[in-house]
Amino acid sequence: MAFLEVQNVVKRFGGLVAVAGVSFEIEPGRIVGLIGPNGAGKTTLFNLIAGTFPCDEGAIRFCGEDLTRSRPYHVCRKGIARTFQIARPFHEMTCYENVVVGLIGRDGFRGETEARRRRVEELLEFVGLKDFMHTEARHLNLIQKKLLEIARALATRPKLVLLDEVLGGLNTGEILKALDLIRAIRDRFGVTILWIEHVMGALMQVVERLLVLDRGRLLCEGEPAAVVKDPRVIEAYLGEADD
């Protein structure tokens, strides 16, 4: 039984085929990178897995369960959490409350307890936002908003996290910190990670497997070092440079 199994999924928007039959599997405990030129369908693929859009064709299975037709809240409760390409924290709520929403979503309305308070503090400390616990999310800067999204996602006790571009706009020092954080997500919480990223150099340092999408299709997959040397991948990226 595969951990995450994506089987021949297709998504069309009107005449545009955003995802044209993609299949892959992910093993538990891995950090897997998902790359591809702009418009390759990476975020659409995330939205299909997360249930934000329904698939037109194909199937998605997670830990033996069929999630193809599942709605987003159901996918989350089954153990898949996500962040968004453009961070979407709850702007008019404090960081603390933002994380609480994740706990509520997973466990239901159980009310505030000492254990829950500790859990929220732990998560905020883990991403380094403990000092902003009672700050409304709209006052955070871009990086902090992304970190808050990660804390919030972890609050749902996921088995798999879908990260959509965490490093965009960070400087070198911040990138190094973020890479440590991403490793720690896996090591400390035992969470598998599927990660879309454009900052290739950084990505290569962390991921153990790489998937490459191009024009809605899976171009190739495998060891990162081998994948980036693959002529098809080079061509796809060069093609982008030509446009």
Binding site: A50, T52, R71, P72, Y73, C76, R77, A81, R82, F84, R88, P89, F90, H91, E92, M93, E97, V100, V101, G102, I104, G105, R106, F109, R152, A153, A155, T156
Partner: peptide
């Protein structure tokens, strides 16, 4: 809290398991 999350951003709320 769920009310406000839904008002702020329903897509994000749904992605966190809120029905």
């Amino acid at each position: 809290t769920a009310f406000r999350a839904v008002q702020n951003d329903e897509t994000a709320a749904a992605s966190l398991g809120i029905h």
